[in-house]
Design a protein around this nucleic acid. Sequence first.
DNA 1: TAGATTGTTAATCGATTAACAATC
DNA 2: TAGATTGTTAATCGATTAACAATC
Lengths: 227, 227
Amino acid sequence: MGEHRNISNAVIKRLPRYYRHLGELIEMGTERISSGELSKRMNVTASQIRQDLNNFGGFGQQGYGYNVKFLYDEIGKILGLDREYQMVIIGAGNLGRAIANYTNFEKSGFVISGIFDINPECIGQSIRGVPVRNMTELETFASNNKIDIAAITVPKSAAVEVADRLVKLGVKAFWNFAHVDLNVPEDVIVESVHLSENLMRISYNLSKSEDERGRRHYGKEKAGKRI
Amino acid sequence: MGEHRNISNAVIKRLPRYYRHLGELIEMGTERISSGELSKRMNVTASQIRQDLNNFGGFGQQGYGYNVKFLYDEIGKILGLDREYQMVIIGAGNLGRAIANYTNFEKSGFVISGIFDINPECIGQSIRGVPVRNMTELETFASNNKIDIAAITVPKSAAVEVADRLVKLGVKAFWNFAHVDLNVPEDVIVESVHLSENLMRISYNLSKSEDERGRRHYGKEKAGKRI
DNA sequence: TAGATTGTTAATCGATTAACAATC
DNA sequence: TAGATTGTTAATCGATTAACAATC
């Protein structure tokens, strides 16, 4: 019962990627696939694929493999993609607009029901048919509309306060683009996209590649101690 | 020597977060901090902090802790933030603009040197002082300007081809926002931001929370086999 | 049936945490 | 010095991979 409690985070992080590849396979008209073939395609071990899927029950068949469409649908259900989610976007800047315009979202059941900003120039504008509302209307809006997810695309300085307001309004999931750790109650989900951290991993790896010839040192030199 | 080879990915992923928190501590005027205090602030174990930092050498002092400013600078160096990176953005849509307008990037040494698109309406426009160029000019541009990083904000269908072109031009790092796995040579870095995967983790967690009451099943029912 | 491939257990590998001696 | 806290080794935990019996 409740099959998907206690599934490790590592597994969950991989599910969307399985889902995407299976979608591509469907588009290609592939009907069945073995863990071995999928393994080659995705660059993960077949063992890992089978282990991951078995966390949720038996989706395959010995001697046959997995039915692509069936597996795709099942993973979709696991990921909760079989229903709609009402999402608001806080911040109608470039990032907020990018998200609002991201047509694919609605396809997968993420419906943008409101966009909010404090900038008078934005307020009243319409983005993809959704009007930009004044942040002062947030509470009224929330009492008339269920908000499943709030995307936070405001600057760091405002993000924490906005999140607090939304938590009070009962919002249980945040998609956070601000460079802060939101502090929310235990039962509230935060998924953060820290773009600057992304860039730092790139610069780390770039400078590492160069080091492979160059050589650099960090911290105290402890002569002879490390090699 | 060449201290930072063979550092595990898990460690590297945490470095930007240390860096951000240390930056906040500097702003607050904090001069020194122990692994224990930082541990409370960041919600990680003190042991992990010490282990992580010791991958790069001894930054602390027994009985004292870590000098915040010194540690911040050292981590900055490790992350390669002590130099500039030339970045181009492929795709002048909302997401491309969001990145281009992200003022903070230049602060940290990421300089946007070019923006490219195929849409005639965009070409010639200027975003933050950077003109939007025709994609056909990419090769010419690359021969006159070093490109350290390319941000790919074009649709999935175009992303793979664009990345191939850029690899041929010698670009060694990609910041990929398209929903595809870019296939690049071994020595090329790809950092992907798959927004839809983010959303799926949110929907997974939301539907899991609801299951905690509801109950759902996936896959074959094997009565009595699992509890 | 024989062959293929899963589901699943056991072995390995890696990452995190605990503990403590070294040392500021 | 005594107290605090690091650097580092050892113990634990968890995740990945290998192996193979079950079974389609």
